[in-house]
Amino acid sequence: MLLAILLPFLSFIVRGKVLTGIICLILQITLIGWIPAAAWAVLSLNNERAEERNDKLIKAMRNNQR
């Protein structure tokens, strides 16, 4: 989470989203764009974690039905 706030572009690149990271870096270069870039990175990270939790829950529910 700290990486997403301090270096938003690097947060995307570490997660394998290189093109998104480059776009975020371009936004981040401007001083005004730093806040939206950080917010974008944090929201993206939270969404990715929520998707992982949902996938685990769906997998557990499917295993219980068998």
Results as ranks from 00 to 15, higher is better:
30 T>D: 08
30 T>S: 15
30 T>I: 14
30 T>E: 00
30 T>L: 15
30 T>G: 07
31 L>D: 07
32 I>S: 11
32 I>Q: 08
32 I>V: 15
33 G>N: 02
33 G>F: 10
33 G>V: 00
33 G>C: 09
34 W>R: 07
34 W>C: 08
34 W>G: 00
34 W>A: 12
34 W>L: 13
35 I>Y: 09
35 I>T: 12
35 I>C: 08
36 P>H: 12
36 P>T: 05
36 P>W: 06
36 P>L: 11
36 P>A: 01
37 A>N: 10
37 A>C: 11
37 A>Y: 05
37 A>D: 03
37 A>S: 13
38 A>M: 03
38 A>S: 15
39 A>H: 12
40 W>S: 05
41 A>E: 11
41 A>V: 09
41 A>S: 05
41 A>R: 01
42 V>M: 04
42 V>W: 11
42 V>C: 09
42 V>D: 06
42 V>A: 00
42 V>Q: 01
43 L>W: 10
43 L>H: 02
43 L>Q: 13
43 L>N: 14
44 S>N: 14
44 S>M: 02
45 L>S: 00
45 L>N: 07
45 L>W: 06
46 N>I: 07
46 N>A: 13
46 N>D: 03
46 N>K: 14
47 N>A: 13
47 N>V: 02
47 N>M: 06
47 N>E: 02
47 N>Y: 05
47 N>K: 11
48 E>M: 08
48 E>G: 11
48 E>T: 10
48 E>I: 02
49 R>D: 07
49 R>C: 01
50 A>D: 11
50 A>C: 04
50 A>S: 09
50 A>H: 01
50 A>G: 06
50 A>N: 12
51 E>T: 12
51 E>H: 07
51 E>Q: 12
52 E>V: 12
52 E>R: 15
52 E>Y: 08
52 E>F: 10
53 R>N: 06
53 R>G: 00
53 R>E: 04
53 R>L: 05
53 R>M: 00
54 N>E: 06
54 N>F: 02
54 N>T: 07
55 D>E: 14
55 D>Y: 04
55 D>W: 03
56 K>A: 12
56 K>D: 06
56 K>Y: 08
57 L>M: 05
57 L>W: 01
57 L>Y: 00
57 L>K: 13
58 I>A: 13
58 I>F: 11
59 K>C: 10
59 K>T: 12
59 K>D: 03
59 K>F: 01
59 K>G: 08
60 A>F: 10
60 A>Y: 07
60 A>D: 12
60 A>V: 01
61 M>I: 05
61 M>P: 02
61 M>T: 09
61 M>H: 02
